[in-house]
Design a protein around this nucleic acid. Structure first.
Lengths: 150, 150
DNA sequence: ATCGATGCAAAAGTTTTGCATATAC
DNA sequence: GTATATGCAAAACTTTTGCATCGAT
């Protein structure tokens, strides 16, 4: 699923956000944001930490900073988190087109999809329960095409 | 959402399961199962531990047993677990009619619903992706009717 | 009497916090 | 120069495991 916004725009927005909150623009914050933007996957804080350690061995980085930055980015609605069962909480770039997930129980892989019928029906349900919907999550669990073939 | 089976039947099935696997029927296992059956809510392992400690102060019980029993019950498809965001993994009785969840972000309350259109559409999506669906989860997050009125 | 279950405490894993230092502004 | 961010290590949680003992069969 493609991102709806270019990285330059994301970065500019992020800088503006930092400035308006008297927060500082640091190398660590930029790299964490870039990692989540570039990789279409879904990452745990530790995944991101390891990826960055490997890719930029010279940059000083602590796991605490990853946690702190993810919280910051989530509050700013730049990334979103989602719990994938036993695997724990994962983060993904939040400014994609809205989509839901197919989670493979064999390989842990995640595919994304979007379905108009389901989107509409969710609104109907919220209305029926007089529920003010801010977000929704739908996950289909099973065995992906590739793993069935194994 | 009502349970589709009486507690007596649940207990009988559980005893049969234990027997056929050379496992033992213990007070702790029965109390944990009963707690999940009786309370329509969604519990963390610690919730269950605290509830039982309070209700049956004389029964010896360790948190490890709660974890072990929940794993056992989940493997046997008697309870099911679901991750509710930051709140971590929660367990609920699994032999209810199938349903999905409305999660209130204000009060943490959970309402259940069932929608035929969504069920059908999920099967369509799985088919489209050649995905062998074993389970699915859908959560609508927002503010419940009661909290909007506050 | 046997074999699995339990509680406890230790260990492993994950996330948060305090603090001295480093860095952006 | 000042205020915030960072890394590190310690602390706080959550979940799992090893082991001696207990209890169901």
């Amino acid at each position: 699923m493609t991102n709806t916004i270019s990285y330059d725009d994301v970065l500019e927005n992020f800088k503006r956000l930092l400035k308006s909150n008297s927060l500082k623009y640091t190398t660590q914050r930029e790299l964490i944001l870039k990692t989540i933007y570039d990789n279409s996957g879904h990452f745990t804080p530790e995944d991101i930490y390891n990826l960055l350690k490997e890719k930029y061995p010279t940059v000083k980085l602590g796991i605490a900073t990853v946690y702190r930055t993810l919280t910051l980015l989530e509050d700013a609605n730049i990334v979103s988190s989602i719990s994938f069962g036993a695997q724990g909480k994962k983060y993904e770039f939040g400014l994609k087109e809205h989509h839901d997930h197919l989670v493979c129980l064999e390989c842990g892989g995640i595919e994304e999809f979007f379905d108009e019928t389901i989107e509409k029906q969710q609104e109907e349900i919220a209305k029926k329960f007089n529920f003010k919907m801010t977000n929704h999550i739908m996950k289909i669990m099973g065995v992906c095409s590739a793993c069935q073939a194994k």
